[in-house]
Amino acid sequence: MEGVVIVKVEEEDEDEEDHFQRERNSTELCPPFLSRSTTMNERALLSSYLVAYRVAKEKMAHTAAEKIILPACMDMVRTVFDDKSADKLKTIPLSDNTISRRICTIAKHLEAMLIARLQSGIDFAIQLDESTDIASCPTLLVYIRREI
């Protein structure tokens, strides 16, 4: 029987609210494995953003996080603590594409914050200066002065 899907339909003999309450109680009684893994994933994500911020701030190559920073951190943690703690660092996403996306996300967020502050109704003055360096690459400087 190709292409045949068999669906079992059960009659609902209970109230939906009771069903959801029972499901909630059963998940609360489960071991805290899910909350622990979620917390670890959130920490790994935050760590990834912090590393991306440092990479951008120091104008390093995006591959530096995966090739230099992560192995160095793992060596330090393995030396000071243990192998189990060092293995947790492997869950931090630090590939060059990931670091690039994180830097773009941080830049967009900072730009949105700046625009929101400028649109808040406070008077400001803006000054633009465009120049070219010896390699004929244009550089735009923007000075914004506002009252606090």
Rank of each mutant, 00 (worst) to 15 (best):
E12K: 15
E14W: 13
E17I: 15
H19Y: 12
Q21M: 13
E23G: 05
E23Q: 15
R24W: 14
S26K: 15
S26A: 14
T27I: 14
C30E: 15
P31E: 13
P32L: 12
P32H: 14
P32F: 14
L34A: 11
R36D: 12
S37H: 04
S37Q: 12
T39R: 13
N41T: 08
E42H: 09
E42G: 10
A44D: 10
L45M: 11
L46E: 11
S48N: 04
Y49C: 01
Y49Q: 04
L50D: 03
L50W: 05
A52P: 05
A52E: 04
V55E: 01
V55C: 01
A56D: 04
K57I: 01
K57H: 04
K57S: 10
E58Q: 02
E58R: 03
E58D: 12
E58Y: 03
M60R: 13
A61P: 02
H62F: 14
T63A: 04
I68K: 02
I68H: 01
I68D: 04
I69L: 09
I69A: 03
A72R: 07
C73Y: 07
D75Q: 10
M76D: 04
M76N: 01
M76Q: 02
V77Y: 05
T79S: 07
V80M: 09
F81Q: 10
F81I: 07
D83V: 08
D83G: 07
D83N: 07
A86N: 09
D87P: 00
K88L: 12
K90W: 09
K90P: 02
S95A: 09
D96Q: 15
N97I: 02
N97V: 03
I99L: 06
R101T: 02
C104L: 13
C104V: 09
A107M: 07
A107K: 08
A107W: 03
K108L: 10
H109F: 11
E111L: 11
E111Y: 09
M113E: 14
L114W: 08
I115M: 06
I115F: 05
I115W: 02
A116V: 00
L118T: 08
Q119R: 11
F124T: 07
F124K: 09
I126S: 10
I126Y: 04
Q127D: 03
Q127E: 08
L128E: 12
D129Y: 09
D129T: 03
E130N: 03
E130I: 06
E130K: 13
E130W: 01
S131P: 06
S131W: 15
I134D: 06
A135D: 10
C137Q: 11
C137F: 02
P138L: 06
T139Q: 10
L140R: 06
V142K: 06
V142N: 08
Y143T: 03
R145L: 04
R146Q: 11
R146M: 09
R146P: 00
